[in-house]
């Protein structure tokens, strides 16, 4: 019995020799349980060793293997060939990021934005280690838990046309991470983050396309976090008119 094969089209870009990306077709042996990264592994091991792509954990927690699969941002590890038998399968690097090589995109800007929102617990009061842990109830955890499940895969940035149109926009994951810390009962850093929220580059760069939440592989719902950020920013806007805050 001959082995069933499937055609996989992969975006290639070799900066030393190419001026622009191009598409290359490969024939890959098909199995029901094959994921997109399994197919890429097969190509790299058997057909073309120069193919570059990021991957690591194979279980949707490291966030490395984000690609555009038939134009939709997906994790390569939890996307299976069996779902593309009728449509064919095309793999490209994540949209809205510069292409470094083949399927590897330059996510430097995304990582900078994550840093920018001060994603750590900020305390205004002076507490020492001897004072013990900051306690939190399950109800307080529920306020931000969903937003803490982000794996920084960048699929939401590839889904977001506002980030694509203007990458000054902080984007879904960074604004969600910001919201996650603002909603944390142990955190007192809201005032240090509110300037980002209030800016055009902050929540107001969002027009609620909603595709970020659609493609998120962890059910984080960044669109909801940003929408709640708009409500927060609106309240802050009114308060600033009633009682002007520090000017910085």
């Amino acid at each position: 019995m001959s082995q069933a094969m499937m055609r996989v089209t992969v975006q290639r870009y070799r900066p030393e020799q190419d001026d622009a990306p191009f598409m290359q077709e490969f024939e890959v042996p098909y199995a029901d349980d094959m994921s997109v990264i399994d197919a890429l592994h097969y190509i790299k091991d058997n057909l073309d060793g120069t193919l570059s792509y990021r991957w690591s954990c194979r279980m949707a927690i490291c966030g490395s293997c984000g690609y555009m699969v038939n134009g939709v941002p997906k994790l390569g590890c939890k996307t299976f060939l069996r779902d593309y038998l009728n449509t064919g399968l095309t793999v490209e690097s994540l949209a809205n990021f510069p292409i470094e090589r083949d399927l590897v995109s330059d996510i430097g800007d995304f990582v900078e934005k994550l840093e920018e929102v001060k994603p750590y617990i900020i305390r205004q009061d002076a507490v020492s280690v001897q004072d013990g842990e900051h306690l939190q109830t399950p109800a307080q955890l529920t306020r931000y838990r969903q937003y803490s499940l982000c794996i920084n895969c960048g699929l939401c940035y590839a889904a977001c046309p506002q980030y694509g149109l203007n990458n000054e926009f902080m984007g879904p994951a960074a604004l969600t991470l910001l919201h996650r810390y603002n909603q944390d009962s142990r955190d007192q850093g809201r005032d240090e983050r509110i300037d980002i929220v209030n800016a055009e580059e902050g929540v107001w760069g969002c027009t609620f396309v909603g595709y970020c939440s659609e493609v998120c592989p962890k059910g984080v719902d960044p669109a909801a976090a940003i929408q709640q950020g708009k409500v927060e920013s609106s309240k802050d806007f009114v308060m600033s008119k009633l009682r002007p805050r520090r000017s910085s």
Binding site: Y13, P15, E16, A20, P21, G71, V72, A95, N96, P98, I99, E100, D106, P161, G164, L165, V209, G210, Y211, E214
Partner: peptide, 20 residues
């Protein structure tokens, strides 16, 4: 040897994806 390639985004971007 880095030469990151930026794909242009055309004004008809929203036709490429059903959700958009």
């Amino acid at each position: 040897k880095r030469k990151p390639y930026v794909k242009p985004m055309t004004a008809s971007w929203f036709l490429n994806n059903r959700f958009h």
